[in-house]
Computed example of a mutant assay.
Amino acid sequence: MRTFALTAAVLLTTLTAATPTHADTTHRGTRWVHNCARPAHTDTAACQALRVVSAATEREGYGPADLLAAYGLPADGGEGATVAIIDAYDNPNAEADLGVYRAHYGLPACTTDGGCFRKTDQRGGTRIPRADGAWAGETALDLAMVSAIAPRAHLLLVEADSAGIADLGAAVNTAVAMGAKVVSISWGAPENGNAASYDTRYFDHPGVAIAVAAGDGGYGVIFPASSPHVTAVGGTSLRNDSSPRGWAEDVWSTSSTEGTGSGCSTKLTKPKWQTDTGCTRRTVADVAAVADPETGVAVYQTYGGSGWYTYGGTSAAAPIIAATYALAGAPAVGSRPASFPYAHSDALNDVVSGSTASCRPAYLCTAGPGYDGPTGLGTPNGVGAFQG
């Protein structure tokens, strides 16, 4: 058995110089670090990836078979879809590392030569930005999770020049212009007065499903998860159990300052398909998937890393949901894919336990039957909730 978490622990000393991190956390014997530092400037995003560096048990991160079983998803899906992954800076080993991940799990190859994988800059060209070890882990995580859920999908990696929202947003526009009908975003920044302008310029794409990480800072919202035009993805803890489903999920929360993001936007309007009454503006999240580093996923990374790791954070949840949209088929022209789960909430696993804080009204930070902030309407139970 490959012990990803413990392998990462052995390599921590080597990785510290290559991969800047901040604020490590230890919870029930498992320790992880934030791959990306908190934004130092306004309108700068941080990735939401959390890398396990030591663990209380020798548990492998979940692989494709685990995730497909947990969420009732078909194997070998995604044919005909293109999923765009938007990240800052370059991971020069992205394609090679993805090849190792896919071969390890028996997934079909996805290469540039075969026409399945493409890497481009934020303008759709070949002026690839400088490499960055911290964001490289985010990129490796995103590519692995889309591959795990939709292994037949084509992958378009668009690398922004910087972590500025304007550069990352330009990369989103490029991905859509290049034909992607599904976009995965695992980064965010604090909401500010520019949110509405950025939302209009970069995230309002009818007929395109954009899945965005809700954040790892506990109760509170980040942008662009708070955009009314995207599907905001919260995080859960996912464990095997003896239920008919075989899996149990509750809200991922480590402390009042770490766990899945949720809450009420202070800047952006409520989409018409959201009907909760405790927030007059946009409520986060819409749906959820696994994000707890203690129940994290397996990733292979050699730039800013040296092999197999266990990762968590809503950075894992967002590409899982993006890939589930890819399994469900291309959204209709002019449609609003963020609304699809609200029309098919019976096709989701309702998460009813756990909280990130104490807040009023309570549903904004505490799970319960039906809609709640931390997990939205629930987690995938097949693809039905992601079809128009």
Rank of each mutant, 00 (worst) to 15 (best):
V284N: 13
S227G: 08
G99W: 02
L156S: 02
I149S: 10
D286C: 10
S237T: 15
I210P: 06
A338R: 01
G217Q: 09
G378H: 01
K272L: 10
G354W: 05
L12W: 14
A213K: 04
L50V: 02
G61Y: 06
G78R: 05
V158C: 03
H205C: 01
A177P: 02
A171L: 05
G278K: 04
T231I: 14
S227I: 10
T314I: 07
A84L: 12
R127L: 06
A298E: 15
T269Q: 12
V83S: 02
G382W: 04
T7A: 13
A225H: 02
A23W: 12
L98I: 03
A37D: 04
G373Q: 06
P190L: 07
T379A: 14
Y342S: 07
D76A: 15
D142F: 09
A170Y: 03
G188I: 13
Y89E: 09
W187C: 06
E138S: 10
Q48L: 14
G259K: 07
A55Y: 05
S243V: 12
T280D: 13
Y371E: 03
G384V: 06
A17R: 14
D132G: 03
P64G: 08
S147I: 10
A84H: 04
G373L: 04
T302S: 10
V251G: 04
T269I: 13
P74Y: 13
A148H: 11
A96H: 09
A225I: 04
H27I: 13
W308P: 05
T7L: 12
H205L: 00
P224W: 00
L157K: 14
G234V: 08
T126W: 02
V352I: 15
T260M: 09
G188S: 05
V83A: 02
T13K: 14
G304H: 01
T366M: 01
R118E: 11
P108T: 10
A317H: 01
N93T: 15
T302W: 03
N194H: 14
E95P: 01
E258V: 15
T356F: 08
A362F: 05
V158P: 03
R59V: 10
A40T: 15
Y311E: 12
S162I: 08
L168Q: 07
T314N: 04
S197T: 12
R152M: 04
H41F: 13
V284G: 08
G354M: 04
T139C: 08
L73T: 06
G305N: 08
L12P: 00
Y219N: 06
F4C: 13
A131W: 01
V299M: 14
T379R: 09
I185V: 15
D24E: 14
N194K: 12
D142Y: 05
D346F: 08
Y89N: 14
R245W: 00
S162K: 05
F4V: 03
Y303M: 00
T112R: 11
N192F: 09
L157R: 12
V146P: 05
G29F: 08
A328Q: 01
A330T: 12
A214L: 09
T254K: 05
A81L: 00
P206K: 06
A153G: 14
C279A: 11
F386W: 12
P244L: 07
G234K: 10
V146H: 09
T266M: 12
L238A: 11
G278C: 01
T302D: 00
T236P: 07
Y311N: 09
Q48I: 07
N349P: 00
A55V: 03
N35G: 10
A213P: 02
D24A: 09
W252S: 09
T13M: 11
V383N: 09
R51E: 14
W252D: 06
